[in-house]
Computed example of a mutant assay.
Amino acid sequence: MSVIKTTGLTKLYGGNPAVSDLNLEVEDGEVYGFLGPNGAGKSTTIDMLMNYTRPSTGTLTVLGRDAQQDGSEIHARTGILPDQFGVYSTLTGREHVSYILDANDAIGDPEAILKRVGLADAVDQRAGGYSKGMEQRLGLAMAIAGEPELLILDEPFSGLDPYGVRLVREVVAAERDRGATVFFSSHVLDQVERVCDRVGLLSDGHLIAEGTPKELRDMAGVRTQLRIETNSNDPPIQVISELADVEDVFYDSGRVVVTCPRTVCYRVLETLDGAGVNIQSFDIEQGTIEDAFVELASDS
């Protein structure tokens, strides 16, 4: 079932398109990363999905319901972390989460939810004393409160330190594992492929490419290379080239360069070691979603 579906979705501001002819389908139970630079149209798309703003043209459904006519039902079944989330300074973390549970007539333990996002020591602290990162984690706690069917996260990594970024990834994975669908936007492209099942790349309001992280890297011609320094004058290049998933291999001035998925790199090293090749050092230059985005945006 398509949890999110848009057809020809377009939003104009002053005659200029913020989102243009967007055709998008997000399936039940997947983590979908909606990626692009600031100003690409990601937040505008989310605003239309949640009926905060109306499209100029096109149609959209969320959880099988019309986003404009059934907004209240959609909101009750959806957890959202909006961009530029703000807190009520006089309310505690517990009170913020309790409010969401009550509003959606949902069951949950505010203390346990806040613990999941790293706020166990600030449950009864007034949110006016929270740091930016703590506010962002509180917004995530409010989004997951009540175990919503759909989780929409707009720039969830904003304002977070490395620990907070990892925590968001862990929460997203846990929500997917319990059966929720997760749709999140981000311009922090390198974090996304660690957790997403599929990715859509948005540029200037247009969806320029869509697929798994691997499919997008392949589409853009972005590859991972293993570079091995050795003092061997005759490494077994032919043997390496015959390994499954090795795309290319060559030897030049004491360096063996292998183009292959990262998961194959250990097998290449093991093969060289087994052949008696002295490996002095190696490094892996991995093509990223960001590399793919740059290539595909340039092509488009």
Rank of each mutant, 00 (worst) to 15 (best):
E135M: 14
V31F: 08
A40V: 13
D102S: 15
E73Y: 04
Y32K: 01
R217C: 04
I208E: 04
L202I: 13
D248Q: 13
D234V: 00
G274N: 10
H75M: 14
E193R: 11
I284T: 14
T10W: 08
E247G: 11
Y88C: 15
P110M: 06
R267Q: 11
F250A: 05
D245T: 04
G146F: 02
T6G: 02
G164S: 10
V123E: 09
D121S: 14
E155S: 04
S131C: 05
S20K: 15
D252S: 10
G200T: 01
Q136M: 07
F157M: 08
N231C: 09
E242N: 10
S2I: 02
G221R: 11
A127K: 00
T44N: 00
K214A: 15
F183V: 01
R198V: 00
T7A: 14
V26K: 03
D190I: 05
P17Q: 09
T6D: 05
E149R: 14
R176W: 03
E27S: 14
T230P: 15
T57K: 12
N23E: 13
E149L: 06
G287V: 04
L101M: 07
P17N: 11
F282W: 10
S241V: 00
V19R: 07
E30S: 07
S298M: 08
R194V: 04
K132E: 03
D83W: 04
I208T: 12
G221P: 07
R54W: 13
T288S: 15
D234R: 12
H187I: 04
T212V: 07
V264N: 09
T57P: 00
A174C: 12
E290W: 10
V264W: 04
E215P: 02
I279M: 12
H206T: 14
S253Y: 07
G41L: 08
A174G: 12
C196V: 14
G14R: 08
D83E: 15
I46T: 00
G15A: 08
S185L: 13
G287M: 05
Q225A: 06
P37I: 11
R194S: 12
P235E: 06
H75Q: 15
L22H: 11
L81P: 04
L119R: 05
T224H: 03
R54M: 13
A106M: 02
Y13L: 07
I46Q: 00
T263K: 12
E295Y: 07
L49N: 02
Y99C: 06
A174I: 08
S232K: 05
S232H: 10
Q191M: 07
R255D: 00
L201V: 05
T224D: 12
M50C: 08
L60V: 15
V172G: 02
V171K: 04
Y163W: 13
L101A: 10
G276K: 10
T230C: 07
R223Y: 10
I74S: 05
D273H: 12
R166S: 13
Y251G: 06
E285D: 10
G139T: 10
L202S: 02
R94I: 03
E295L: 01
R126N: 00
